[in-house]
Design a protein around this nucleic acid. Structure first.
Lengths: 159, 159
DNA sequence: TTGTGTGCAAAAGCTTTGCATGTTG
DNA sequence: CAACATGCAAAGCTTTTGCACACAA
């Protein structure tokens, strides 16, 4: 599914909500309004975000949530694969919606912090082969390339 | 260089110290005993370690260092490529000596935290290709595979 | 009604910073 | 002797925890 219009986004959010509902039911967890609100907020966002930004943004919309609930729900969403958690070299977890979007890895600019995404099928091959060799059941991975982006663009973003 | 005997380790440490000296000179930084002591401590270790473990270990040897110096020196060593810094999915930086050792990536067990190392030439190809395509000057990378190691081994380590 | 989930605030854990003191060049 | 590095403790930041209350089932 490709999100190109507000209607498609709405549709995606409904789909994700029902997946989340199933997960909650299956694990005998409660369907609280906070959990759905956080999920909706995440899928309305583009790009990566950290827990604090999500919390602040919901507060600014006058939605009453606590940091604790934000963290709890993020963990819950990560556990059912609706959200992925990243660490881009800093001591700050970054999150990203993942359902309906292509698996990808990241290229991070060490000067300006800009994050680009890319896909390469070879990473899957590496996972398969190394899992076999080392007798690991590989569940997920994280590949980050760090470097410097085009000077002009990078200078622009710094300001 | 392969470290197989105490003599070879001694030799490696001397080599690394002189590289460090050159770096300090080139950048007009001071050659303090603390900096060399930390470097030596790191190269005498095997495996990965965090800043606190390094600090504690030096304290236990009755070496007078502060956490601040440990963190400062680690950053210095990372900047001259004698040490690499990792984040294995936790908010805790892990470090590892890097001079004279083969470039490698990591496989982390999500149950017991065990870390294995592996090499795959395809990662270099990915770095080159993606750097070209996205016009990035790729300086380094981080590839972590997360999964479950052989049940028996994992159970052993848990205890 | 029962017990899980939430909000709030305090605590915890890793890392950085400020300042007085020590030491390198 | 001047500037940089260190030690120590305090502060900073992200994340987790404890507890009383709310509310989903």
């Amino acid at each position: 599914m490709k999100v190109t219009t507000p209607e498609k986004l709405e549709q995606l959010i409904e789909e994700v909500k029902s997946i989340f509902s199933l997960h909650l039911e299956k694990n005998a967890l409660r369907k609280t309004p906070e959990r759905y609100a956080i999920l909706e907020e995440i899928y309305s966002r583009t790009d990566h975000f950290d827990a604090e930004a999500l919390y602040i943004h919901m507060k600014n919309q006058n939605y009453r949530v606590s940091r604790a609930t934000v963290y709890n729900t993020l963990e819950l969403l990560v556990s059912c694969d609706l959200v992925v958690k990243h660490q881009f070299g800093k001591n700050l977890a970054q999150y990203e919606k993942s359902y309906g979007f292509k698996q990808h890895d990241h290229m991070i600019c060490i000067d300006c912090g800009n994050v680009l995404e890319f896909c390469d099928p070879r990473i899957q091959q590496i996972k398969n082969m190394m899992g076999d060799i080392l007798e690991f059941d590989v569940r997920h991975h994280s590949l980050n390339l760090y470097g410097k982006c085009q000077k002009t663009y990078c200078e622009t973003r710094k300001s």
